[in-house]
Amino acid sequence: MTLPPVLEVRDLSVRHLRRSSLFARASYLLALDAVSFALARGEALAIVGESGSGKSTLVRSLFRLHKPQSGQVLVEGVDLAILSPSELRERRRSMQMVFQDPLASLDPTMTVEQVVAEPLQAQRDAPEKTAAHERVVQQLIAVGLDPALMKRRSQRLSGGQAQRVAIARALIGNPAVLICDEPVSALDASLRAQILDLLVQLRRTRGLSLLFITHDLSAARYVCENTLVLHRGQVVERGTTQEVLTRPQHAFTRQLLESTLTVDPVLARQRRAGLIGDVAAR
């Protein structure tokens, strides 16, 4: 590979100040411990972890909403730490994000059109009104929404619609990387596959790189060819998704696999029996 990765994280460590009471001595919690990975152009990488694994800290650090203790975040080869606030804002544009709770990520006072057009208006070379409107329409169609929804307030959308609007907003500025933070776990099961399908399709048509943060191994497998498992701030496992799922090396990964729910009744009974022995193995 000669091209530099679109996103690279080198030895990133972040600690949080933790104080049990006002007078207690400050102690630090290491939220991320020397995490490194690279995301190549067009790659889809899953970061799998549970609460407290450091997932959210990682996401925030990627946008420099947290200052790391040590380590670097490089976006298209540029270290975020050396940028001025306005340069940082420019640079962030090549990396956009979709959140877990679609309704919370849309301003309740805004219409769909205002939400989707906002990143365009924030650009230094903002397109004029009709051009912007045109791009919003195209973008809504691209994520499978009826442009007639444009004038609707974001709070009157269904969960699935709202998540599509959030994806449209993230993609309107043509970013190189899309970071998805649990994009389907707040949605009903019947909508999950649709949204994941949309992500897979957008990735293919736009050559997008995906960083897919999830607790759900099956969603990771559905979207990403590579997987990295985060546990207590450390990378405990990495490789192709296929490898990680079939030949997990770390005990935590194995536990995660064992715990993952399945609708396959035979497999479900096996896993149940595996955990509590012969009590329920009837």
């Binding site: 607790h215 759900d216 536990q255 995660l256 064992e258 715990s259 993952t260 149940r272 955990l275 509590i276």
Partner: peptide, 11 residues
């Protein structure tokens, strides 16, 4: 709950 905790509580 987390995936691993969920399985434990269900069991």
């Amino acid at each position: 709950l987390d995936v691993t905790t969920q399985a434990v509580v269900l069991d």
